[in-house]
């Protein structure tokens, strides 16, 4: 598959059948549906297989260090709040190495959209456990199986009252595209946890495993109700709810901040970029 970035046509580094292809396709469709001006779009990532996605899309790209997509994205958004700053990175990058940044980006509720490819395993480093791997998951490093509890990013996001918290999956691309559009439209921080099969290293959480479990939230789910949202975020098992779990009422950092709420900082410099 070739990338659409006008700078170069790039062969992807993903395995055939990788969930990342569906996520990339859903993202392209979401951006096209919304009519996003790609020159005002910055795709930010850290390191990992998911973190390569920005190179295959038509966008400005900031592909930084492992775990550090969030501070970089925060810096970009602070500098020019008119840009659409969107992170596409993996569970190891966002929930493991970058865990502290996730906590504080959500505390700030900065207007960055974080699309986390959550395949519950480390792909690029070849198959170790991730922070969301289920207990008992055996790898070449976790030879006795994972003992630690899986990290629940959605529950944390709900408790911090961030603007938009949702879950979808690469196995339901239409739903995923809708969630991406909703996340981009929302003000403030958006966390979209995307359940994704890893065809090479995760033989447990397969396409079939996810298809059998993901289920849209009931029509009467109220994303403004924190208790309902927390209950949905904590549900994991035979049924895994997908959809907009929570919509927090806090203002975006850039709207609440006395300096940032004015003109974009970058406007202070008169040079016009090419």
């Amino acid at each position: 598959m070739s990338g659409a970035n006008e700078n170069s046509a790039i062969e992807t580094a993903w395995c055939p059948g990788c969930g990342n292809f569906h996520i990339l396709e859903a993202l392209e469709h979401a951006l096209d549906t919304l009519g996003t001006d790609r020159r005002r779009l910055v795709l930010v990532s850290g390191i990992g297989q998911a973190a390569k996605l920005p190179h295959y899309a038509k966008a400005n790209v900031f592909n930084g260090l492992h775990g550090r997509a969030l501070p970089a994205a925060t810096g970009i958004k602070m500098a020019n709040k008119k840009l659409l700053v969107l992170i596409t990175s993996g569970d190891g990058d966002m929930y493991g190495e970058g865990g502290n940044h996730l906590v504080h980006a959500m505390r700030r509720n900065i207007g960055v959209k974080a699309f986390v490819h959550n395949n519950q395993v480390y792909g690029l480093t070849k198959g170790q456990a991730s922070p969301t791997s289920e207990p008992g998951f055996v790898t070449k490093v976790q030879v006795d199986g994972v003992l630690s509890a899986p990290f629940n990013p959605l529950a944390l996001a709900v408790t911090l009252g961030v603007s938009f918290v949702a879950r979808s999956s690469a196995v339901i691309p239409d739903h995923l595209q809708t969630m991406m559009q909703e996340a981009i439209r929302a003000k403030g921080f958006a966390l979209l946890d995307i359940l994704q099969p890893c065809v090479t290293f995760n033989k447990v959480n397969t396409y079939k495993w996810y298809r059998d479990r993901v289920k849209e939230l009931p029509k009467n789910h109220d994303p403004r109700d924190r208790d309902q949202a927390l209950a949905a975020a904590m549900t994991w098992g035979d049924e895994i709810p997908v959809g907009v779990i929570y919509r927090g009422a806090r203002p975006a950092f850039e709207d609440a901040h006395p300096i940032l709420s004015g003109a974009p900082l970058v406007n202070a410099f008169t040079q016009t970029p090419p």
Partner: peptide, 17 residues
């Protein structure tokens, strides 16, 4: 750890940090 990464983002977007 966050600090220089945020600075890189700001500089990337054209603002001295």
């Amino acid at each position: 750890i966050a600090a220089p990464n945020l600075l890189c983002g700001a500089a990337f977007a054209g603002v001295p940090a």
